[in-house]
Design a protein around this nucleic acid. Structure first.
Lengths: 129, 129
DNA sequence: ATTCGTGCAAATGCTTTGCAGCCGT
DNA sequence: ACGGCTGCAAAGCATTTGCACGAAT
């Protein structure tokens, strides 16, 4: 059994992600954390992101071939904006069955719900193209 | 404006995908279509998959860093099996609002819903580990 | 004849991994 | 001191792209 040690890098990554309201990609997070730890390596970032996902401290969002990360581990819904491509949290019912689990001869344990549309910000700056 | 020509390769790809009930990755589809067109190239496959997605003839499913494709373009729910990793269709309510669209100051156009759990087949061969 | 689509191979981009040295316990 | 964690660089892998040729209209 492998113990887990404290590391300045992992702490900084988690802290940075928790301080954000968006859901950055690995590269976005990398650039951000490098302001604190300039010689942080990409390998370390990825190793830690994977570890944090496995230990359930963060969540990985996969949509359209992109990977985004979220420090909020409570089940909640997301919006992926068609225009700016960013992810946003949506008001999510507390009721687990807000999404009706279909009858299925197997086990449905959890779900991921992502809406597509236009985010508040992009809707305001309504640029018709 | 670019016209689109008929191509044996694109037809074979679409036909193969439509004949399947699973939702293959690009590589799985590649291996399958190569039984019909042995010298099909990966570049061609990817170019066509992207084109078919853009023209709305197929759908791309992104989960956990994997890309799967689906020839059924009607909105429906999926299960990603924890054990075998495969995708399956789930019985999906016809009602568009089976998933309650949250109040949001923007526009919610569509959504993607993926359940996680254990598929029928894996549930039967209940291997406790 | 025009120009789109293909096969091939090289290039790209993101992620993982091997390794030697550093750091937490 | 032990063994996990890091930076670096190389490797891996899926996907994209440039190019010359073949095929559809």
């Amino acid at each position: 059994m492998q113990q887990i040690r404290k590391s300045r890098q992992r702490d900084a990554i988690l802290q940075d992600l928790r301080a954000r309201t968006d859901h950055p990609t690995a590269m976005e997070l990398y650039l951000s954390v490098r302001k604190t730890i300039p010689n942080l390596s990409l390998g370390t970032l990825y190793r830690n992101l994977n570890g944090l996902c496995e230990s359930g401290q963060i969540i990985r969002l996969s949509v359209g071939g992109e990977e985004h990360f979220d420090a909020c581990t409570k089940r909640h819904w997301h919006l992926k904006c068609d225009r700016c491509g960013r992810f946003y949290d949506l008001p999510t019912p507390d009721d687990t069955n807000a999404v009706p689990f279909p009858a299925y001869e197997g086990e449905l344990r959890d779900y991921s719900l992502v809406f597509f549309g236009v985010c508040t910000h992009c809707a305001r700056t309504a640029v018709e193209k």
